[in-house]
Write a protein that binds this DNA or RNA. Structure first.
Length: 592
RNA sequence: GUGCCCGUAGCUCAAUCGGAUAGAGCACCAGCCUUCUAAGCUGGGGGUUACAGGUUCGAUUCCUGUCGGGCACGCCA
């Protein structure tokens, strides 16, 4: 890790300010920060220290700045410092200090940008965690792209990262999928049972029904009369409107069908259940792998029940006096821990709620010794965070270790109109379909191109057009151009490590060196803020500078020292582009 | 109705945890390939940061209110 050896250049500059501050006002030892000015004529670094001290010292910022400059020790890194604007201290580096970054990058290679933020602390990132009841759609794709990029980013920033997928294999949704598949299977044999309005209607259900038929033949068959015995009538349109598949009669019809299925099928019900679960998980895993996303662990919700962890955690809450009975259900007094109301953990019928198993899940995570637990959730779950925190607090656990970045919804637009999506009816654009249309690279880059908590309008026409409007091509093209030049040159890349960089003197070159210098800072702040989009924007900016340089200056010139220096700079830029794209899950093509 | 998030160029979005003259891309206008990839570059127009107050050296950022949008408010998961 680079920062463990010699102090980085920004750290050295901060050291100079620290000494100056110590001399000027020994009693004030706050953290000193550096900023990167937007404008080149404001120097390489700007320090707002004088502005911040103004209040406590009760003096004009510019006067303080002047004194700080006087107190700063001389340094071979610094050409000059000056007071600017309301009281900024602008730092101008010497030419050699600016150029030194090229060799720093080349020596570090793909390790450039590694920072010690994580200090080898263990972090778990749990993301996607979609119900295995159907194909992943474009909303899950955003969670996958964000979570994976964030995990890469945290790793780069010095954390030990584990990726986990929480499989909701224990709930009613799985029963609904099981029943939906069975009903499709039965209709293949001529059954006339009305398909529930809230059943899963996608083509993949019919495909799984076909699999049941080839695997189990007709052994899962039961006559309609036996199935419908005692089942409430299927709701007609007068009972429930089309727009509300969750209406009570619809739910009751579904529940009674599931109950009959379990009774009639016995052991076979489990076989169907396991078959559809296995199929959906395999499909999900393949889909994500093709998206460049892999998980270290797939954690089964059912396993929490099998090991008795759900019952145990409810018992612990009860013993600690945080539960009470009301209306036949068992409630957790979460309002005592900041939640807006109390929550049920065990229903009147004796079944635990999803909330109960989720408490057990988070207790299990904490017990596994992570210093930081990051749950990437859809923004629609935001109201759920306080109750999980409340439960962990009630159990005396370190709830502050749980962090929940929210990923906002994705709206699809086709021909300027919003596309309606419904998982049950199969009317959604799948992640797989999106990848097929725009490709993995464009999809992954597009997804992280805005803040995760910002609503994302995914323009299918734009994304599927394969046009140069898609910014991923812009960044990849910069990398491919560099590779092309280096290939044409044909020399030994190792020779670039030792060549002199003093010929790098023009503004385009200094600008690129500034960007290279900024990379570790971008990694650190993006990891700290859980903001992969900051890296995406950085790469766009770096690529823009590279393209500009490419058009302004010839590289393969006759002057050997100049040629070598410029190629060294290109190689350094390529390193950062390649590494940044890797973190975002985007390929860095040699040619385009 | 209550809570959370959001409102920045015609469109899609940034803005270094309160910093200097608010920046990119697309679209529009004018230029640049007999030399390393034109999926590129150079220049130009485009803003009361939804609105009104407040906090201070300084506000797109923090606080209050209004307007507008999204989401959530189950013994579903």
């Amino acid at each position: 890790m680079t920062s463990n050896h010699t102090p980085s250049l920004p750290q050295q500059i901060i050291g100079l300010f620290t000494q100056a501050l110590h001399q000027l006002a020994p009693e004030l030892q706050g953290p000193i920060t550096l900023e990167r000015p937007r404008q080149a004529d404001h120097g390489e670094f700007a320090c707002p220290l004088a502005l911040q001290l103004s209040k406590s010292l009760r003096r004009a910022p510019r006067d303080i700045a002047q004194d700080l400059i006087q107190a700063m020790p001389a340094s071979p890194l610094i050409q000059r410092v000056e007071v600017a604007g309301p009281g900024f201290i602008n730092v101008f580096l010497t030419t050699s200090a600016k150029q030194a970054v090229v060799h720093e990058v080349l020596q570090a290679g793909l390790h450039w940008g590694e920072v010690a933020l994580g200090r080898n602390r263990r972090v778990q990132v749990e993301f996607v965690s979609s119900n295995p009841t159907g194909p992943l759609h474009v909303g899950h794709g955003r969670g996958a792209a964000f979570g994976d990029s964030l995990a890469n980013l945290l790793h780069k920033a010095g954390y030990l990262v584990q990726r986990e997928y929480y499989v909701n294999d224990a709930g009613r949704q799985m029963d609904i999928l099981t029943l939906s598949t069975w009903l499709r299977y039965l209709s293949g044999f001529g059954s006339q049972i009305a398909f529930p309005a809230n059943g899963y209607q996608g083509d993949y259900v019919s495909q799984m029904a076909e699999q049941l038929r080839s695997r189990f033949g007709s052994t899962l068959l039961h006559p309609d009369t036996a199935i419908l015995s005692g089942v409430s009538h299927a709701p007609t349109h007068s009972d429930a409107s089309d727009t509300d598949p969750d209406a009570a009669p619809v739910e009751a019809y579904m529940d009674s069908l599931i109950e009959r299925a379990k009774i009639l099928l016995g052991e076979s019900y489990r076989s169907i259940h396991d078959h559809v679960l296995t199929q959906q998980l395999a499909d999900c895993r393949d889909d994500l792998e093709e998206f460049g996303v892999t998980f270290d662990r797939w954690f089964s919700e059912q396993s929490l029940y099998d090991r008795g962890q759900v019952a145990q955690v409810v018992q612990q809450l009860d013993q600690a006096g945080h539960l009470y009975l009301q209306d036949g259900a068992r409630w957790f007094r979460s309002s005592a821990f900041g939640d807006e109301k109390d929550r049920v953990v065990q229903r009147e019928n004796g079944l635990y709620t999803y909330f109960a198993s989720d408490i057990a899940y988070h207790v299990d995570k904490l017990a596994r010794g992570f210093d930081l637990i990051i749950d990437v959730w859809g923004a629609d779950h935001h109201g759920y965070i306080p109750r999980v925190r409340a439960a962990l607090q009630a159990l005396g656990l370190k709830a502050e270790r749980l962090e929940v970045p929210l990923v906002q919804f994705v709206s699809l637009y086709r021909h300027g109109a919003k596309v309606q999506m419904s998982t049950r009816k199969g009317q959604f654009v799948t992640l797989r379909a999106l990848r097929a249309e725009v490709g993995r690279d464009a999809a992954r880059f597009f997804y992280v191109l805005r803040k995760s908590d910002q609503h994302l309008d995914f323009d299918l026409d734009l994304a599927t057009s394969q046009s140069n409007e898609n910014p991923v091509f812009y960044v990849q093209y910069a990398y491919a151009r560099i590779r092309s030049v280096l290939h044409k040159w044909g020399g030994d890349p190792a020779s670039l490590l030792t060549c002199a960089v003093s010929p790098l003197q023009n503004n385009a070159e200094f600008s690129l060196m500034q960007w290279l210098r900024a990379y570790p800072e971008i990694i650190e702040s993006a990891a700290q803020d859980r903001a992969p989009h900051a890296l995406a924007f950085y790469l766009k900016d770096l690529a823009a500078d590279l393209h500009s340089y490419y058009n302004a200056v010839p590289f393969l010139v006759d002057d050997i020292p100049v040629r070598m220096a410029r190629l060294a700079l290109l190689q350094a830029v390529a390193c950062v582009l390649q590494d940044g794209l890797r973190i975002l899950g985007v390929s860095a093509p040699e040619t385009m």
